[in-house]
Design a protein around this nucleic acid. Structure first.
Lengths: 146, 146
DNA sequence: TGTTGCTATGAACTATAGTTTAGGGTTTAA
DNA sequence: TTAAACCCTAAACTATAGTTCATAGCAACA
């Protein structure tokens, strides 16, 4: 049978603070959520599907404003399919670009970690400090290690 | 020969606004940068190396405060190697976790794109709308498509 | 020597994404 | 029927990461 969920249950399911769900609603991300006569939000299973999508977009760095735009298109029915596809394809490109940037940065970070983890890390770092000090001295610049 | 760089040159090299570099300096991210007698910042090649690392950490989501902490450890010399390693290993875990989350979300986004790109996308979406409407009706909740 | 362009600071301002508070209704279970 | 546990809104507040502005001092070149 179809169940409904309170805001607290939804918050637990998605590991979000209740305040964040209310904030999303205020920002127009949850126009599909009904309210009962007392004014309480009543979430259905299909609502949870939408929220899952919202979390997906959020976790990949889409702004609230863009997500709102996407949800708005969803609520307008089948006529907006092309717009939605365009929006998601654009976002997909952004995500892939970000993935690449993270990948690249992570490699640099790993190199630093390896230096620090080396048995001769103290020597490596000491040599680097000396190098910087010589460079700075040759340019008549202040020694940053002092 | 060792060259020096103005803030403008550094901004161009790293594709950062000049205001951001000043902001980073104010936040304690650039304690290694010297100033000439006029008060102008003078960047050396080793400074650029540091800034490269800062960009790395920033691009993988480290906060300004954490980066400041890392740089501070760097300036304290070889005695802080263990602390730096710990800090970067911790960050590494965060980055990898984020990578996984992005990977997972991207798959969901791709599924949506595929639905929208399907030759029968209109039917798929129409069926979904009908499903939601039935679910909402069976729960005596307002139809969100109207 | 003056004009153009670069640099500086501090303070105010902006954007984004929430969180907290105040004040007040609702639901549930003893 | 009343206390505890929910839920609501509006508005104020916070945190983060910058950006912009006002004012003013250097630098390079015609």
């Amino acid at each position: 049978m179809n169940k409904t969920y309170s805001i607290k249950e939804v918050a637990e399911k998605f590991a979000l603070p209740i305040s964040t769900i209310r904030y999303y609603d205020k920002k127009g991300l949850l126009p599909f959520v009904s309210k009962n006569k007392a004014g309480y939000r009543v979430f259905s299973d299909s609502d949870l599907q939408f929220i899952q999508t919202i979390c997906c977009l959020k976790d990949t760095g889409m702004s609230i404003k863009k997500i709102q735009k996407y949800i708005e298109l969803c609520m307008q029915g089948s006529t907006t399919i092309d717009d939605r596809k365009t929006l998601l394809l654009q976002h997909r490109q952004n995500v892939i670009q970000k993935q690449k940037a993270i990948e690249k940065s992570l490699k640099e970070i790993d190199q630093k970690i390896n230096r620090y983890a080396s048995p001769i890390s103290r020597d490596l770092i000491a040599a680097q400090i000396t190098y910087v000090q010589n460079e700075k001295a040759s340019l008549n610049l202040k020694d940053p290690f002092s």
